[in-house]
Design a protein around this nucleic acid. Structure first.
Lengths: 390, 390
DNA sequence: TTGTAAGCGTTATCAC
DNA sequence: GTGATAACGCTTACAA
């Protein structure tokens, strides 16, 4: 004698398969599917105790789901006593809100995606620290992905991030990236984006960059001030704006000080240590070698110092070296490496703040705005000549 | 009078189409695209075009949701033609599956949580690289959180991770952590956990550790082999197993070689550079100072070298130094630092594989299993005495 | 103050 | 082969 749970009739009930191991019924009268919960054995062996839900609490207390939801969110108009009872029961039943369900109904995720080219150097982890500092404080989680400097990985990562319905994206592109369709998808969905360090002009987004031009000028003028005259530049990949900017700074600093810009003294690396090493040797083997080298970053500069050391060329007496990015190693190598320090953690903080601001007032809309952060020249032994500067 | 946002010039500005309803400009001078954000009307109709769903596709094609779902998942019994039409329409409508909804119905997230104490040194980022390598390949995403070595942060992070319904947790505890209730919550929900490096005996989980004992023995026996006799140990926090194990290795190596273990030669740091510096000075100022120091990690060892340098004590002639963890700086400091290298990336890879294995056959259940990875002693100048070893 | 029920975007079961 | 529809866990009008 099965009674319909809705209309209480017994006629017009038919079996309708199984649901979670229970017989399921269908009432033709009121077109209602149901099962008889009671008989369910508490799954004799495998009791992977399903996490407590709002419903469980409601049932235990004989109130409605909505009341529980309200109480848990400290909604104003819910009776103090029921609220207290609910909160206590929640604790007792070890209730943990299901963020996934919450996200679905809110169609947001409170997740910010962070996509960086690599984790191998201190730079990106430090940016991440800065961003996390701000975002976790604001109740956001982060999904961090690395593209391994591969365009293909970047594409698949952005797809994942898109599917994860991230609320915002903080990204630094790979050095391979030349097409930007995968970022346009975020643009179209009005998911705020902040690019840092490496960015595409084609994409409408906030950009945070280091003033690479100014940093390069400062570095090269420092070398000139130390009396170096034949200054080479180990430049970065041509498609990266940061390479272009540092190159521009190098060129302008030379010109402004009446020094010639010589093509044979400019070499573009791919940022790998191997290439840096080869190019360093090339520079040092030249018939008329440079008396100083400004490198695109510290790892490259370190390779230059090592190459010089191997050849018995004294740094800074015979060769001045300046790097970029203030790698922790640069303080410990002999001689200490003069370098251009970037406000790394600040980039992360700022990017996070921008994202939060965009999220807060979507009204104002993402304009492509541009923030330039200043660098600081850290002078160490590698560029300090004994001779008096002039 | 439009000024370029980058170079501030007004000449050479030309219009370059529209972007999101805004006039876009292009500066020929510095090849820079931009728009003037201010004037953007809040998108008159405000059509934050809701992302395409399965339903939209179904409606557009006059089929049922379930058919679309099936087609998109390449289900066997769906007509080839409808499948083709659906897939094409999905593409056309720029459909992106909603991972959140998928997760809800599957009550899983395909997210692995990773909780580490800090990001400041290379160690943890490297472990993360290793884990990500395996996990993204297996279609899992990662949420990475840092506890900043703070117990309170660890608690709140685990709560977030729990609410995010992560499928598994890879964790290294803070050095403060003494209670483990927050991890028990995962145990109760049968969410697989892998602890690495720092772990609690109280928690039933997989553990991956470096064989710290063996690494310490190797380091100290190397010093003894080099003729050092009064060897101090700058140890780590007492509550960390890794500190205990390295201390045990230090003690055993001394005893085994007939050397006394002296309490005044053992100091426990909190792993900060400041404390390391103070303790280093303390050692060097002793009436009868040690002739070698084995440090808990490389940053501490570097502080020791710097303190010795400041005091004019020659390393390795007057003081042998050995560190632990093969920090990138250790190869570049003068003299190069002898250190115990850990298979860092391998830890991450292994942790990820363990999680995946646990996820695959939940049947076997989480046993507390123990994996010890071997270390490798990297000998550099800081411990190589001119005198013949004995 | 509380309950009812629709809805978020999927998958999966069953009926046809 | 395809279509209804319940279910996942939650929020939130709207009703009571």
């Amino acid at each position: 004698m099965i009674k319909c749970l809705k209309c209480n009739r017994v006629e017009a009930i038919l079996k309708a398969g199984f649901l979670r191991g229970q017989q399921r019924y269908y009432c033709k009268d009121c077109s209602f599917h149901f099962t008889l919960g009671g008989t369910l054995k508490p799954s004799p062996t495998s009791r992977k105790s399903r996490p407590t839900t709002i419903k469980d609490i409601a049932r235990a207390l004989g109130v409605a789901n909505s009341t529980v939801s309200r109480a848990l969110h400290d909604h104003p108009d819910v009776n103090e006593d029921t609220k207290k009872a609910i909160i206590q029961m929640a604790q007792q039943m070890d209730y943990q809100p299901n963020q996934v369900a919450y996200d679905l109904v809110k169609s947001q995720s409170r997740i910010i995606g962070m996509l960086v080219p690599e984790f191998n150097h201190v730079f990106f982890p430090t940016v991440i620290i800065g961003a996390q500092e701000i975002l976790t404080k604001a109740g956001y989680r982060m999904i961090i992905m690395q593209s391994n400097e591969s365009y293909a990985d970047e594409i698949s990562n952005t797809a994942t991030l898109l599917a994860s319905r991230i609320d915002g994206l903080i990204v630094s592109m790979t050095k391979e990236t030349n097409h930007y369709e995968h970022f346009k998808a975020f643009e179209k969905r009005e998911i705020p984006m902040v690019f840092f360090n490496r960015y595409a002009e084609e994409i409408m987004a906030q950009r945070i960059v280091i003033d690479d031009y100014q940093g390069a000028v400062a570095a090269v003028e420092h070398l000139i001030g130390q009396g170096y005259r034949r200054i080479a530049h180990m430049a970065g990949p041509r498609n990266l704006t940061l390479s272009q900017e540092r190159l521009r700074g190098y060129i302008d600093a030379l010109s402004r000080n009446g020094l010639p810009v010589l093509n044979e003294l400019i070499l573009h690396t791919d940022l790998s240590d191997e290439t840096a090493k080869i190019y360093a040797q090339h520079f040092l083997d030249m018939a008329e070698p440079p008396d100083a080298i400004f490198a695109i970053n510290d790892p490259s500069a370190i390779q230059i110092i090592l190459a010089a050391r191997a050849k018995g060329i004294r740094v800074p007496a015979e060769l001045g070296v300046v790097g970029y990015s203030n790698d922790p190693r640069s303080a410990y190598i002999e001689p200490g490496l003069t370098t251009v320090a970037q406000p790394t953690k600040e980039i992360g903080r700022l990017a996070a703040k921008k994202i939060l601001a965009l999220l807060a007032n979507e009204a104002s809309g993402p304009t492509d705005q541009f923030v330039k952060l200043d660098t600081e020249l850290i002078v160490r032994a590698s560029s300090l000549r004994a001779q008096a500067p002039r």
